[in-house]
Simulated assay, not measured.
Amino acid sequence: MKHIITALIFTGLLISCNSSDKTNTTIQNSETTETTTKPTPTETNNNFTAIDSDEALIATALMAAPEASRANCKVIGYNMAGEFVTLKEGDNEFIVLADDPKKNGFSAACYHKDLEPFMARGRALKAEGKKHQDIFDIREEEMKAGKFTIPTGATLHIYSGPKAEYDPETAKVDDAKLRYVVYLPWATAASTGLPEAPVASNHPWIMNPGTHRAHIMISPLADDNK
């Protein structure tokens, strides 16, 4: 009888231990499953809306300008009615060209006011129906003839992206990025020490070397903090 009682006690202990181990294992598996299957939170911005007013055109265009100068920039470009106008008066050294609402995507540009004769001439030739290479050749000859100049070191800021949507609170355009052009008329790779093609992302290089439109291209790395 003593042996039977001992056996029953031992069996009860084994059942209790097995039950406890199973409970602990189930909790651990549940925590592991929750950790691995729970979706990672992603920060999304649902505030983006269409750029569909002159005010929105101005606000988004100014994002191409240095932040400290935006308040006093002059903004020109096509309004929502399709007219090329001065959208905003300004009195500092910058002119901002707003996005053309009739075109896909978004592109605004900010440049030093001394570049306006060069830019205006390009717009006029384009309005005449001239193609890209024709505009390039005509302005090259006109600059050689002294009809206008491109100041060395004058900078063009370009803010562009594939979507014409923006956040009204910040004026930030969805997926838009900045890149920069620094004009160095007639400069070459030899005179600047810069390559004629980008070596890697974010590296400056010289484009159109040896021409009136020679310039340093700088494309900053994408900002992933949205």
Score class of each variant (00 low, 15 high):
76 I>A: 09
88 K>A: 03
38 K>L: 11
14 L>M: 12
169 E>M: 11
49 T>P: 00
1 M>Y: 09
10 F>I: 14
174 D>V: 04
85 V>P: 05
99 D>I: 01
207 M>Q: 07
29 N>W: 05
17 C>L: 15
128 E>N: 12
147 K>D: 05
171 A>H: 03
73 C>G: 06
183 Y>I: 03
49 T>D: 01
20 S>I: 14
212 H>G: 02
14 L>I: 12
29 N>A: 14
72 N>Y: 05
97 L>Y: 13
190 A>L: 04
201 S>R: 06
26 T>N: 08
2 K>N: 14
35 T>S: 15
41 P>K: 12
145 A>R: 12
59 A>N: 15
98 A>I: 03
88 K>E: 06
206 I>P: 12
26 T>A: 14
95 I>F: 11
129 G>P: 04
128 E>Q: 15
125 L>A: 10
97 L>A: 13
76 I>Y: 08
111 Y>L: 10
174 D>E: 09
26 T>K: 10
226 K>T: 04
91 D>N: 15
35 T>I: 14
190 A>N: 11
57 L>Y: 11
130 K>E: 02
138 I>H: 04
38 K>D: 11
88 K>S: 02
21 D>S: 08
179 R>K: 11
26 T>L: 11
116 E>I: 01
73 C>A: 11
126 K>F: 05
28 Q>V: 15
53 S>D: 09
20 S>G: 09
73 C>S: 10
144 K>H: 05
153 G>R: 02
3 H>I: 11
188 T>Q: 00
191 S>F: 03
15 I>S: 12
201 S>P: 00
203 H>Q: 14
55 E>I: 09
6 T>L: 15
203 H>T: 14
226 K>W: 00
163 K>R: 06
196 E>S: 10
139 R>M: 15
196 E>K: 02
218 I>P: 01
205 W>R: 00
140 E>H: 04
18 N>D: 09
151 P>K: 03
110 C>W: 06
120 A>H: 05
198 P>H: 02
92 N>T: 10
194 L>G: 03
209 P>N: 01
217 M>K: 06
32 T>Y: 11
93 E>D: 15
180 Y>Q: 01
218 I>V: 13
171 A>P: 03
220 P>I: 08
140 E>G: 03
193 G>Q: 06
96 V>W: 05
194 L>W: 08
188 T>P: 04
198 P>Q: 10
153 G>I: 01
174 D>H: 10
139 R>D: 00
64 A>E: 13
211 T>H: 02
111 Y>V: 08
137 D>S: 13
80 M>L: 15
195 P>A: 07
217 M>A: 01
178 L>W: 13
58 I>E: 08
217 M>E: 14
138 I>L: 05
181 V>H: 14
136 F>Q: 01
190 A>G: 01
38 K>Y: 09
23 T>L: 07
121 R>E: 08
55 E>V: 06
180 Y>V: 06
150 I>G: 07
114 D>Q: 12
16 S>L: 13
172 K>D: 07
72 N>F: 10
35 T>H: 10
60 T>V: 05
15 I>N: 07
220 P>F: 07
207 M>D: 13
108 A>M: 01
100 D>K: 14
10 F>Q: 08
61 A>C: 08
21 D>H: 02
4 I>C: 05
75 V>K: 13
152 T>F: 01
124 A>L: 09
110 C>N: 09
172 K>M: 10
70 R>E: 08
7 A>T: 15
